[in-house]
């Protein structure tokens, strides 16, 4: 060892960073690309389908969102979404599916504290900040 890592907090942090294994970023990115692309492709298919039914474009996008939110909620309720998430990382998290998952998962988790104080108040533990902050930005 060249210098003493215990000398200061910064040197220890540097030492720890060297010692800590990194996430397999290439593999993760590949999986994220694959799954993320697939989710968007499914969305596009739903979109095209709605369009053939003569629904106007803005509503088609809403239908796509709601269908994907439903699928994601359904998989979360079946305790499957976390397995997909582990594989895909941002691939399932960045699309709207991740937003639904971040609302549905605390809803299930805090069921034991009741439907009002548990589910009702904890539902947005993960997602609420995003809603609030983006709201704030727009008002600006």
């Amino acid at each position: 060892m060249k210098d003493n890592p215990l000398e200061s907090q910064t040197s220890y942090q540097k030492y720890v960073d060297e010692k800590t294994p990194n996430s397999p970023i290439l593999k993760n990115c590949f999986n994220a690309f694959l799954v993320g692309g697939l989710i968007c492709a499914i969305g596009q298919i739903i979109f095209e389908f709605c369009k053939t039914k003569g629904i106007d474009e803005a509503n088609c996008y809403t239908i796509v969102s709601i269908s994907l939110i439903f699928a994601s909620s359904f998989l979360t309720a079946l305790n499957c979404f976390n397995k997909i998430g582990k594989f895909a990382g941002a691939g399932s998290f960045v699309p709207i599916t991740g937003f639904a998952n971040s609302i549905v998962s605390p809803a299930i988790e805090y069921k034991s504290e009741g439907y009002i104080m548990g589910v009702g108040s904890k539902m947005f533990t993960v997602a609420r900040s995003s809603a609030c902050i983006s709201e704030f930005h727009q008002v600006l």
Binding site: S23, C29, N31, G37, C40, F99, A127, S134
Partner: peptide, 29 residues
């Protein structure tokens, strides 16, 4: 395009110490 946006998210998760909730906020913002 969706895949590329997801890759950006993945790099953020792996390379920074941001939690997934913060990344969610970042993307929406």
């Amino acid at each position: 395009c969706g895949g590329i946006i997801c890759i950006i998210g993945q790099i953020l998760i792996d390379k920074t110490k941001l939690t997934s909730a913060k990344i969610l906020v970042l993307f929406v913002t």
